[in-house]
Amino acid sequence: MNIFRLTGDLSHLAAIIILLLKIWKSRSCAGISGKSQILFALVFTTRYLDLFTSFISLYNTCMKLIYIGCAYATVYLIYAKFRATYDGNHDSFRVEFLVVPVGGLSVLINHDFSPLEILWTFSIYLESVAILPQLFMISKTGEAETITTHYLFCLGLYRALYLFNWIWRFYFEGFFDMIAIVAGVVQTVLYCDFFYLYVTKVLKGKKLSLPA
């Protein structure tokens, strides 16, 4: 555990809680991609199956349970409790174009050809692109609520901090996981355009709106 890993995890947790609170307090999931949230629930489910097979630490187990619990709670709020506010017409990204290639790639390129390891690999690859339906939705509507941009910023920051964590671990522990690193770089790069808009607009007090 190093400072980048810890702040990365906390940033991830902050993102998840910001989104849950936003939906709960406003009683609305307008502007939120339910498809991205389903993908994240799938990511956590396939990655954390090792909860049943190996114990790493109390911290590790607690965070996994919180992430999974919050992911399903978010999906429940969007598709059940506040379904009437869900903007399905704008959430039109075709997720099969992500899930099918990612599934194929995880069978082809993995550390070990075993069911749990393939599912872990699938979750890593899927996480790297799971935000695309949300970014697609924002590009379609041309705007995002400020609280939604805070959510996205924390979510992008989390993976960027993990990149520093991996650099740290490579130098001080000789540890590297090529699958996680490459997918993490892809994931972080997908946020770069958003990071730019966040810094130049949202942090200066303006709403995030894209030019028509």
Binding site: D50, S54, N60, Y67, H111, D177, A180
Partner: peptide
């Protein structure tokens, strides 16, 4: 590579 006991990252 990965640890023997799985992945410690979240």
């Amino acid at each position: 590579g990965t640890d023997d006991d799985g992945h410690d990252e979240l």
